[in-house]
């Protein structure tokens, strides 16, 4: 009996919650999607236009304004976890010096006619856009938490190493609808490049931990 009442309470709370936070666009969401898609040149290369496609995670995160209910969040996290792929040799720690470079590069992948990146421009992890890492780099963003002293604080157990790899490969495996990109899922970074960035976070000699 008590359980039933509790359940009922939960359901109404959930309903009230969803009524409060209407999905963006409300009843015009579908039409807005069509309008958005119609805003681009018809003769754009196919691969440019593929950047407008949304997977289930993107769609759901948009609908919930980046804050999905926990149940839905869990489902997305599972889905994203299943996408993670590892380097063939199974080694998750690469060369921190390579990782240091990749973490700083914010260019690559810009398309369009006005200011595209030249062909072959390195695509980096752009971690400094959102995170503090090495102390000496002061031009860091604050969308994500500071990662300075990452391994000093967390230790460098195999578990933390794997966590760092997985997080960079697919951030949504842990936090559905996080603001952090899914670098491995989109093949923005290769598994090997991710191991270099993991080393940058984990190696005691890396400026992330040393300074």
């Amino acid at each position: 009996m008590k359980l039933k009442i509790a359940l009922f309470g939960l359901c109404t709370a959930a309903l009230a919650g969803s009524a409060l936070a209407e999905a963006p666009g409300g009843k015009y969401a579908r039409e807005a999607e069509q309008m958005f898609r119609a805003s681009f040149r018809a003769d754009n290369p196919k691969y440019w236009m593929s950047r407008l496609e949304q997977d289930e995670t993107m769609k759901t995160c948009g609908e919930y304004r980046d804050n999905p209910p926990r149940k839905i969040g869990e489902k997305l996290e599972k889905l994203n976890k299943a996408s993670i792929r590892y380097p063939v040799d199974g080694k998750l720690i690469g060369d921190w010096k390579e990782g240091e470079k990749l973490a700083a590069v914010g260019t690559g992948g810009h398309i369009g006619f006005i200011q595209p990146d030249p062909a072959g421009r390195v695509r980096g992890g752009n971690c400094y856009a959102c995170h503090e890492l090495a102390k000496k780099e002061v031009a860091y963003g604050t969308i994500g938490p500071s990662l300075n002293h990452f391994a000093k604080i967390r230790g460098n157990s195999d578990e933390i190493i794997k966590y760092a790899y997985d997080k960079i490969y697919n951030s949504n495996a842990f936090t559905a609808c996080t603001n952090m990109p899914r670098f491995g899922l989109h093949s923005w970074l290769t598994p090997e490049q991710i191991t270099h960035i993991v080393a940058f976070l984990m190696d005691p000699e890396s400026p992330v931990n040393k300074d």
Binding site: G25, A32, E33, F36, G62, G109
Partner: peptide
């Protein structure tokens, strides 16, 4: 409203 929809719409290789 349509602008609000686009504001929250995620896509592309950086989500």
């Amino acid at each position: 409203k349509m602008g609000e929809y686009i504001f929250y719409r995620r896509s592309g290789p950086q989500d």
